[in-house]
């Protein structure tokens, strides 16, 4: 197994997700579902590492991807003005994907995953909405929010199929990758709402927000490297891929 095989597996999963939510009108106006390849990689990690992976795992992974796509659609809705046809249909894309994930799991009778994913969506929404609350949160709490948004649904998938041994690396990896992205977006003048909130949370500190986040990234990198060096469950090719993912994400 090399990086090409991993990339092909991610692409295949993406194709399968697209196939399951294909909708003529929605695709025409809102485009293809938005999916994060880093999340898809961690969704497939147990499979890539040789864990028993049958048709049910495959279908379940597809539905986790669909839920991500659903929530990502709703993140595209403008806060104040969603009156264009594209925005209206984006609301419906998210709802349609949500209905489709439920339909697929209902068809296969996978009630336990429906329950886990629903609980996961509830938790994710509770964190996402924090951006609009008047309460003050610490930077640690914002890291936690980013982590929940990035990892919650994959964690639920791991729980159902007893893949919890991958939870720690997935949490560290996805939080690290997202913080790198946040810093890069900010540097390119495309600051996200969550970055602004993190900035506000450290406004009384002497260090700049960039340095504080970089410090967190460095400590997450150390944690990740330590895990990769000591892990005896993860294949070497995957360890290399994860290291490259972090390095490439930084350069890109």
């Amino acid at each position: 197994m090399d990086a090409t095989y991993i990339q092909q597996s991610i692409e295949q999963l993406k194709t399968n997700i697209f196939m399951h939510v294909r909708h003529r009108t929605l695709t025409q106006y809102t485009g293809s579902p938005v999916l994060d390849e880093n999340q898809l990689f961690y969704l497939l990690l147990p499979f890539l590492n040789g864990e028993k992976w049958d048709e049910q795992n495959e279908v379940s992974a597809i539905t986790v991807g669909i839920v991500h796509a659903s929530l990502n659609e709703h993140d595209k809705i403008s806060e104040m003005n969603a009156t264009s046809k594209e925005q209206q249909l984006t609301v419906l894309s998210g709802d349609y994907y949500s209905g489709r994930y439920y339909e697929i799991l209902a068809h296969s009778g996978n009630i336990s995953l429906i329950r886990q994913l629903s609980e996961g969506i509830v938790n994710r929404c509770e964190h996402q909405i924090k951006l609009y609350e008047s309460s003050q949160y610490t930077i640690r709490e914002w890291y936690q929010t980013i982590s929940v948004i990035q990892t919650e649904l994959i964690k639920r998938f791991y729980n159902v199929y007893q893949f919890e041994q991958y939870s720690s690396i997935m949490h560290t990896g996805l939080l690290l990758l997202q913080l790198q992205k946040e810093l890069k977006k900010h540097a390119s003048g495309n600051t996200s709402n969550i970055f602004v909130k993190m900035q506000e949370s450290v406004s009384d500190q002497e260090s700049s927000i960039e340095l504080i986040i970089q410090g967190e990234i460095d400590s997450l990198k150390n944690l990740l490297n330590e895990y990769l060096q000591t892990s005896n469950i993860l294949k070497d090719d995957l360890k290399l891929y994860i290291q490259q993912q972090v390095a490439f994400n930084f350069i890109q």
Partner: peptide
Amino acid sequence: QWNNRVAMYTGDFIFARALEYVT
């Protein structure tokens, strides 16, 4: 009362609660 995003997340929360309940 709030904004479109709050409505999106509230709606998603309620949909998810509905499915959680029905399981």
